[in-house]
Design a protein around this nucleic acid. Structure first.
Lengths: 310, 310
DNA sequence: TTGAAAGCGCTAACAA
DNA sequence: TTGTTAGCGCTTTCAA
């Protein structure tokens, strides 16, 4: 017990004893056994992050910011990639639960959760971007981008565009639906006619957006485009650059997300910028201290329209 | 014991008993206690990844690939960001050691390790890209890019360039030194004169490369550039695009790494492409099965010159 | 200030 | 096939 007390910094140890213990422990290369401490009931200071992937610009930046915040809070961060697959998600939650992770930040996979609810016992659960009610999370951290997306339409209209297309994520996702609606709101606010044939939603893949926008350029059905997704924005941009649409043909474009090269590609890209770092810090704050009385259940962060190509 | 046996799939349990146990466990929402199993001496199936950061294109892709490989191998992946700081690195290793991680893949921080060697007891240690001898790792996974870099010079010479600059990482890093040497070898192979004034090495930051290349464009001291680092390549590219050097002035450029937009930016960028996924799979393979008799200590992966702007 | 006992949940070894 | 015992390393409680 004296050794234990010396090692954990308990005050009731004679200084000479403590020093001797510490010195000897160091000599022997002693390291605490986290499993034994956990078994006694302590926190593990391990938190999980469940992401569909980590190549998407948003996820990569979020993972980075969260990893940084975790270092600061001396939490260990376990990353699981789910591929948006409910089964993988359930497995990942189970494994985190087994090691008694203190909490988990997750982008819930779309669709219904697996029957037989996932094991999240004793973990603080924070939903990110998307959310789901079965089982309900402890907290939810969301992006509010409707004003920025409507603003994107206004921006393009101000530049003289009237046939504006939209490429966004699947309307099966709550976020996909909300963004498409925001786009339509922007269209109406500008007194433009509804053009459902210029609204493209589907899988949020780079290749999908690439081929859709390539076709759009061929037909010439629109002179401008708003994107409602990170990967989609990359795919659209690829098509636009290959067709030399931005500089050459004055095609209007507002991207989604803000990878560093958006600032210098073309003449600089106007884009819907998401405050990734504040999101991550809040998420970690909720995990580190879930019982703060000031804690709201839902936390909203506002995306802003970053104007560049004026 | 019967319950334990039923739960772990031990054969000596009557089918009826096993089914009853499993059913009841499910009803109760039972989850295994990983801490207790670990204390009994089992593997934790947790592995660590120590990276300077995760915004750098290589690290981000490596983390992604390794996370994927870990899902496949049902390993849990803990990511620690070190910022190339030896102290943070030592702390991270200690925490992984405390939870008895099975192994760790790390990019060792440059410079001497902290006195009082880091706690890596019982962990398989794999060094990535860089390596260090104190303490020696169990394995080392390295990139062999000298031929690709020399090839980059040859490529630019074939396009008619004779004043070729190099922007690379600090020569204090083993990798930085090796790449600069490879560049010089390429210069000599082309029978060009040594031009130490066109070789820039220093901190591998985007901003550093950006300002160096901006200045280079102003002076006009070179007509082409080879990059020897991921972040540097991004910074150089930013300066080149802003100065409209690639398309407008026919400036020659070979980048480093292969983020997706290199394929469609400008006319497509020739670049030194690193086989990130194979690296990650090998690293995970070594962690998952360190005692394979076929295992080499050092594993080299060859970077290739991806020709695009011909 | 120091120490003895007990128990966290699990499973290897042995016994029935 | 099922059950008993013991011990992994730690810290809380209580006693010296």
């Amino acid at each position: 017990m004296t050794v234990s007390r010396a090692l954990t910094g308990h005050p009731n140890v004679q200084k000479a004893t403590r020093d001797a213990v510490l010195r000897r422990a160091h000599e022997l290369g002693y390291v605490r056994n986290a499993a034994a401490r956990t078994m006694r009931g302590g926190r593990t200071r391990i938190v999980g992050l469940l992401l569909p992937n980590i190549v998407n610009e948003f996820y990569a930046r979020f993972a980075n910011a969260m990893a940084l915040a975790c270092e600061d809070a001396s939490l260990q961060l376990i990353i699981h990639l789910t591929g948006d697959d409910p089964e993988t998600e359930t497995m990942a939650l189970a494994r985190l639960s087994e090691i008694q992770a203190d909490g988990v930040v997750m982008v819930p996979a779309p669709g219904a959760p697996l029957p037989g609810q996932p094991a999240t016992a004793n973990m603080t659960v924070v939903h990110l971007i998307r959310t789901r009610d079965t089982p309900p999370p402890d907290f939810s951290v969301q992006i509010e981008d409707d004003k920025a997306i409507a603003g994107a339409v206004a921006h393009l209209v101000a530049k003289g565009h009237s046939r504006i297309a939209y490429v966004g994520a699947d309307q099966a996702l709550s976020s996909g639906r909300a963004r498409a609606t925001a786009f339509q709101k922007g269209i109406r606010a500008a007194n433009l006619p509804d053009t459902p044939e210029l609204i493209f939603t589907g899988d949020a893949t780079l290749d999908g957006a690439y081929s859709q926008v390539s076709r759009l350029l061929e037909t010439g059905a629109a002179t401008a485009l708003v994107c409602g997704g990170f990967e989609l924005s990359s795919g659209a941009l690829k098509a636009l650059m290959e067709g030399d649409a931005l500089r050459g043909k004055g095609f209007g474009f507002v991207g989604y997300g803000d990878p560093s090269f958006y600032s210098w590609i073309g003449n600089g890209l106007t884009t819907v910028a998401v405050p990734v770092e504040p999101l991550a810090r809040r998420a970690v704050g909720l995990l580190a201290d879930p019982d703060q009385p000031s804690n709201q259940k839902t936390h909203r962060f506002t995306a802003t329209l970053r104007l560049r190509d004026q």
